[in-house]
Amino acid sequence: MHVKIKVKVNGMEHVHEVEPRLLLSHFLRDTLRLTGTHIGCDTSGCGACTVHVNGKAVKSCTLLAVQADGCEVLTIEGLSTNGTLHPLQEGFHQEHGLQCGYCTPGMIMTAADLLKNSPKPTEEEIRHALEGNICRCTGYHNIVKSIQYAAERM
């Protein structure tokens, strides 16, 4: 049994018939070919699959695509405007906030949620906000600096 869903992703409306068991992460990557959203642990632990649904950071590996019906989804692909990097993307570039880059889309989407609710976070707040995102390369230090870089410019 397929279910018709209408989801606005990065400002563009998509209507698809999906199996109810299709995960949002697979819908974004396989159906819409938006492969910027990564799947890491696939058990809601690592945060690589973080996207925004109706403005809130969520783990797309633990959501069904049908749950996003009628919602607005923002992925890493929707963050830059007219080819200009979002301050967070620029920050991760300038402050060397990534090495392998696997966790980066999730880190940036979580950080974007944080900066929306708390535009000038302390270092402690940044580290606390990132508790659901795991990075195995950087030791987090440069990720924190990248977010501070963005916070100063937003």
Binding site: S44, A57, V58, K59, T62, T110, A129, E131, G132
Partner: peptide, 9 residues
């Protein structure tokens, strides 16, 4: 509970 993404859902 969990982390902010988990708490949001």
């Amino acid at each position: 509970i969990g982390d902010v993404q988990v708490r949001n859902k």
